[in-house]
Simulated assay, not measured.
Amino acid sequence: MTGLEARAAFLDWLEKERRASPHTLEAYGADLADLLGFLSRHLGAEPDLKSLGALRPADLRSFLAFRAEKGDSASTRARKLAAVRSFMRFLAKRHGVSPDAIAGLRGPRLKPPAPRALREAEARDVIAEVGSVENSNLLSLRDQALFTLLYGCGLRISEALALDVRDAPRAGTGLRVRGKGGKERLVPVLPAVEAAISAYLTARGGPLPEAPLFLGARGGRLDPAIAQKALRDYRRLAGLPEHTTPHALRHSFATHLLGAGADLRAIQELLGHASLSTTQRYTSVDAVRLLETWQKAHPRSE
């Protein structure tokens, strides 16, 4: 089996058995293509299972050093190493390839950036006024419904755009969301979210249950890039910070809940995080806001 065939088998396993997202498949596929291209030059021939099993940590360190010279950031190199680790473990389990190359191998140290949330007033402005950049009432209602949903329920943009009309959120019953890895979670729905979605669907004229909840101008499922552009256009018009993105509304959802006293475990469940450590990043955001409040309010802060 050649290295390229092994890569194809690994990606097929990721998709069908691990139910990896399309983004993960694309990123890992590109990372492993980079690895195999490097090894072809490094070893003097296209790698096969035997040569992959003969790799040592020094070979992978050389690969990471090469990628650093090419300008890859620490986070990009860490992701590439994660892809390589997963690939080598797959080969060890399925084809008996030695995993010695990844034994004790450490990637670049990363300090996770604090999520960049909007202030509460900024988030309210977005969901109230974002539709003003559209040239039709239907698209205006669509954008308002979408961004109200992102902020009101803490959804990822991909999760929101995957919903169908039958999934339309209703206050009191909650919204069932399929997140990363196909993991489902139930999210409470605010009346304001239900009202925004209902106004949009009414303007659409009673769409079929199996139709996409959010439509593009041409009638297909709304593309994330179009939604991102709508918010980008509005933030420039309104003078909002550059980090005003669809994902920032999800960050804002979590940060504002934490600031209001919500339990960190509950926020973890609402966001669909597999690990509490991911959710704990929001405590640093809250600490920053606390310091800002102290500096503004304390009589001896100047």
Rank of each mutant, 00 (worst) to 15 (best):
R89E: 14
A123H: 11
G71P: 02
L60G: 03
L36V: 13
F38D: 01
A121H: 13
L91R: 09
T24S: 03
P113Q: 13
G37Y: 06
R79M: 02
F66E: 15
R79W: 06
D31A: 15
G104M: 08
D31N: 15
L118W: 05
S51L: 11
R85I: 11
L110P: 07
D100P: 00
L110Y: 10
L138H: 04
P99D: 14
T76H: 02
H95C: 07
S62N: 09
T24A: 04
P112M: 08
E134K: 03
E26L: 14
G53L: 05
R79I: 04
V133I: 15
G131R: 03
F63A: 08
L49N: 04
E26M: 14
T24I: 01
A114V: 15
R119C: 06
F90G: 07
A65Y: 05
A78D: 10
K93V: 13
G96K: 04
K80E: 09
R85D: 06
P112A: 10
L105A: 03
A121G: 15
A82I: 09
A117G: 08
R119F: 03
S40Q: 14
A103Q: 10
R61H: 07
K93M: 12
D100H: 11
H42A: 00
E129N: 13
D31Y: 07
A20Q: 00
A78Q: 05
D34N: 12
R79C: 01
K70P: 01
G104S: 06
E134C: 09
R79P: 05
K50W: 10
A30E: 11
P113T: 08
A33W: 02
N137Q: 12
D48G: 13
L32F: 07
A114P: 02
R109H: 08
P47R: 11
Y28I: 00
L91I: 14
L49S: 09
R61V: 01
F38V: 02
H23N: 14
D100Q: 14
V133N: 11
L36T: 04
R41A: 08
D72H: 14
A65L: 12
R109M: 04
E129G: 05
D59I: 11
K111P: 02
A20P: 04
A114S: 00
A30V: 07
R18L: 03
N137D: 13
R79A: 00
H23P: 05
N137M: 10
S132D: 14
L138M: 13
G96Y: 11
S75M: 00
P22H: 11
A20G: 02
E69Y: 05
F87Q: 13
E120I: 12
F90Q: 06
A78I: 07
V97Y: 07
D125F: 07
K70M: 00
S140F: 01
S132I: 10
E134G: 03
F87C: 12
D31Q: 15
G71E: 01
D59A: 12
G104E: 02
S98K: 07
P47M: 07
V130I: 15
F66W: 12
K93S: 14
T76V: 09
L36S: 11
R56Y: 02
L25S: 07
I127N: 07
S62K: 09
